[in-house]
Computed example of a mutant assay.
Amino acid sequence: MVQTADRWRRALRLAARLAILPELAAAYYRGTAPGQIGDFVIIIPGIVVLAGLLACLVTAGLWRRLLAALLLAGLGLHAWQLGADEHIRAFNECVDRGETVRQALADYRAAHGRYPAELAQALPEIPCRPRFANSLLDYTASADTYTLYFGDALVSHRASESSEFDAHK
C-alpha cells in the first residue's frame, strides 16, 4: 500500500512540474490578448491558486511550499506582464506604421489594378505583430476597396482606401 501511495505522489509531482510551462505560456498569451480592463484582476487569483497547488505537489515542508508558491506566482505574473508588454509594443507599431501600410496598398493597386487579397502580397513584413502571434492588424479587401482595423478594449482604429486611420472609443 505504501508503494502505491508513493507512486501516486511521484506521478502527481511529475504532473505538477510538467504543468508549470503550459501555465507560464498561458499567462504570456493571455497578456498578448487583453480584453476588458479587469483582466489583470481576474488572472491574479488564477495564477496564485495554481501556483499554490503546484507548490503543494512539487515540494515538501511548509516553508518550501510557501516559497515555491510565491516563486511560481511571480513567474506567472511576470509571463503575463511580458505578454502585455508585447501587445502594447505591437499596438503602438500599428499606430506608428498604419499610414505606411495604406501607402503600400495604394502602390500595390497602382501596379496591379486591384488591392491584394492578403497584406503579405503588398508588404514584405506585416507590422503590428506580437512575438508568437498573428498581427493585430485586420485587413479585408475587394478589388476596389479595403478596410484596415486594429484595436483593444479602449479604442479601435479603422482606415480604408478613402480615409486615414480614425480612432473610436
Rank of each mutant, 00 (worst) to 15 (best):
K169N: 11
L72D: 00
A26T: 15
A68S: 13
R64A: 09
A11N: 12
E93P: 00
P34D: 09
R131F: 07
H87S: 06
A141N: 00
L77H: 04
A141F: 06
A167V: 09
G38W: 07
D6P: 05
R131N: 08
P127E: 03
A25C: 12
R89K: 10
Y29C: 07
A79R: 01
T100W: 02
G98Q: 04
G46C: 13
E164H: 13
A110D: 07
L66K: 04
R64E: 12
T140F: 01
L67P: 09
L137E: 02
S156E: 07
D39P: 05
L82K: 05
A51V: 08
L82H: 02
E23F: 14
A117P: 00
Y149F: 15
I20W: 00
W63P: 03
R7K: 15
A55Y: 01
F165P: 03
A27F: 01
A153R: 08
A122N: 06
A111D: 08
A141P: 03
L62I: 11
A159S: 07
L123M: 15
D85Y: 04
D39S: 01
E118F: 15
A122H: 10
S162R: 09
G74A: 08
W63T: 05
D85F: 14
D96G: 05
Q36R: 08
H168S: 10
W80T: 02
R64K: 14
E93S: 04
I126P: 00
R114K: 09
V155I: 12
R89H: 06
Q103M: 06
W63M: 13
G52H: 11
R129Y: 00
A73I: 03
Y29K: 11
E164M: 01
L71S: 10
I126S: 05
G98F: 08
L62F: 09
Y139A: 01
S162N: 07
A73D: 08
L66M: 03
T32R: 12
Q81A: 08
C94T: 10
A122S: 09
F150I: 05
A90K: 10
E99N: 12
P22V: 00
C56Q: 06
A167P: 08
I47P: 01
Q81D: 01
L66D: 01
L105A: 09
N134W: 01
P34V: 12
I88E: 13
L70Q: 06
G38P: 02
R129I: 09
H112F: 13
A33H: 12
N134I: 13
T32E: 12
D107Q: 11
R17N: 04
L137M: 01
Y146V: 02
L137G: 01
L77C: 04
D144F: 02
Y28P: 02
I44S: 11
A69N: 04
E99C: 06
G113P: 03
A11F: 14
Y108M: 07
C56R: 14
Q121T: 08
A111K: 11
T100D: 10
L82Y: 04
